[in-house]
């Protein structure tokens, strides 16, 4: 199962396999926990500035504390600033939590969302034969002609196995 989750995260599963597995993740809290841990591991390995963690309890606790500072105070400005900062921090965490919960509810939409946001197809996509004209036009003026001679035109005559005969 763990191997499957890993494969899913690497995008190595076929669509039907992925859907089956995502269904299991939704239904089984144990598998779901594995899924979450794998993402946490991935996040840590990528060394981002912040890491997703389930912080529901801590945020709730902070929010409970918030309630007590609603009454006006005659303390110094410094204190107010600190309170404001604290509530801002709590709000940020709340946003983080909402985002995390959205992921919990609908894990399979996350990759699609990420793809839409970046507006890009996966990097490993091959240049389509339809774009050959641009490669040819580029090659005409590339200095690689000087260094590699005619062999530099290889990019424009190479073919992909899935390419159909024109």
């Amino acid at each position: 199962m763990k191997h499957d989750i890993s494969a899913l995260m690497d995008g190595e599963l076929f669509e039907d396999e992925a859907e089956t597995l995502l269904g299991q993740i939704r239904r089984d809290p144990g598998i779901y926990a594995d899924w979450a841990v794998y993402h946490l591991i991935g996040d840590v390995l990528r060394q981002p500035e912040c890491i997703h963690r389930d912080m529901t309890d801590r945020v709730s606790e902070r929010l409970r504390n918030e309630a007590t500072v609603l009454a006006p105070r005659s303390r110094a400005l410094k204190q107010k600033a600190r309170v404001f900062a604290l509530s801002a921090a709590a709000s940020l965490m709340a946003v983080g939590m909402v985002a995390w919960m959205t992921l919990q509810i609908n894990p399979e939409t996350a990759p699609q969302l990420a793809m839409q946001q970046s507006g890009m197809r996966p990097v490993n996509l091959q240049i389509q034969p339809a774009a050959n004209d641009y490669l040819m036009a580029h090659q005409e003026f590339s200095p690689s002609n000087d260094m590699n001679g005619g062999a530099s035109y290889i990019h424009t005559v190479t073919y992909s196995p899935e390419e159909k005969l024109q």
Partner: peptide
């Protein structure tokens, strides 16, 4: 046609 694609070093 939108997106990123590659062929070798290109």
């Amino acid at each position: 046609k939108e997106g990123l694609s590659s062929r070798g070093a290109v």
